[in-house]
Simulated assay, not measured.
Amino acid sequence: MVHPYPLGVRYSDVEPTAPFSKLFTEIIRAQAASTLHNESHLLNLEHRNIVRLLKLESAADFGLVIMECPRGQSLQRIVDTLALPLMHRVLITLDVVAALRYCHSQNVLHLDVKPTNILVALGTKSSGSGNSSKIKVKRSYICKLCDFGSSIEVGEFCAWQEPTVPKGTLRYMSPEALRSDTLTEASDMYSLGITMWQLQARRLPYHTLDCNETIAYQVVKHELRPDNYHQLKILALDSPIDCDWDLTHESTANVICRRANTSARRNLSVDPSYTVGRDLKKKRRRNRLALHFDSPAPEGSACSESAYSQLYKSCWVSAPESRLSSIQLKHELEFILCHST
Rank of each mutant, 00 (worst) to 15 (best):
L178C: 13
L199R: 01
W245E: 06
S251G: 14
D244W: 15
L145E: 01
S127F: 11
G130T: 00
L209S: 02
V219E: 06
K233H: 11
V113Q: 07
L247T: 15
S251E: 05
F148M: 05
P115T: 08
S126Q: 07
D210F: 07
L224A: 05
T195H: 01
W245A: 00
L224T: 11
K221A: 15
S251Y: 07
I234G: 06
S133V: 03
A121T: 11
T169S: 14
K138H: 10
K144R: 02
Y206N: 14
I118W: 04
T248S: 08
S180V: 01
I234W: 03
V220M: 06
K233E: 07
G168A: 09
N228R: 11
K138W: 08
S174N: 12
N131I: 03
M173E: 12
L209I: 12
Q231L: 03
T252S: 04
L192E: 09
S187V: 10
R139M: 00
R203D: 00
K136C: 11
L111N: 09
S140G: 05
T169D: 08
E156Y: 05
A177Q: 13
S127H: 13
L235S: 12
V219A: 10
D188N: 08
C211S: 15
F148W: 00
I194C: 06
H230F: 09
E250D: 02
V154M: 03
A216W: 03
V165F: 00
L111P: 13
D238Y: 14
T214F: 02
K125L: 01
H207A: 15
Y141M: 02
T208K: 13
E250G: 00
R202I: 12
L209M: 10
S174Y: 02
T214M: 15
S251W: 05
T214L: 15
R171M: 01
M173R: 08
L119P: 05
L122A: 00
L237W: 11
L235E: 03
Y172N: 03
C243A: 06
I241S: 07
Y141L: 00
L122S: 09
L170S: 00
I241A: 13
K221N: 14
A177I: 10
H110P: 05
I118G: 12
Q161A: 11
F157D: 04
H110Y: 13
T169N: 07
L199E: 01
E185C: 15
L122D: 08
L111R: 10
N117P: 15
S150W: 03
D112K: 01
L232H: 10
L247H: 11
S151R: 01
Q198E: 03
D246N: 15
G128I: 08
S127R: 06
P166F: 13
H230V: 11
S251M: 07
L111A: 06
F157T: 04
Y206S: 15
L209T: 06
I215L: 07
E213W: 00
D238S: 15
D242G: 02
I194E: 00
K125A: 03
V219I: 15
L237A: 13
V219W: 14
E213T: 15
T164L: 08
S126D: 08
D242M: 12
Y190I: 11
D238L: 14
S133Q: 04
R171V: 12
T252C: 04
S180F: 15
I118C: 11
K167G: 01
A236M: 03
P175T: 13
S180M: 09
L183Q: 14
L247A: 11
T182C: 03
L199N: 02
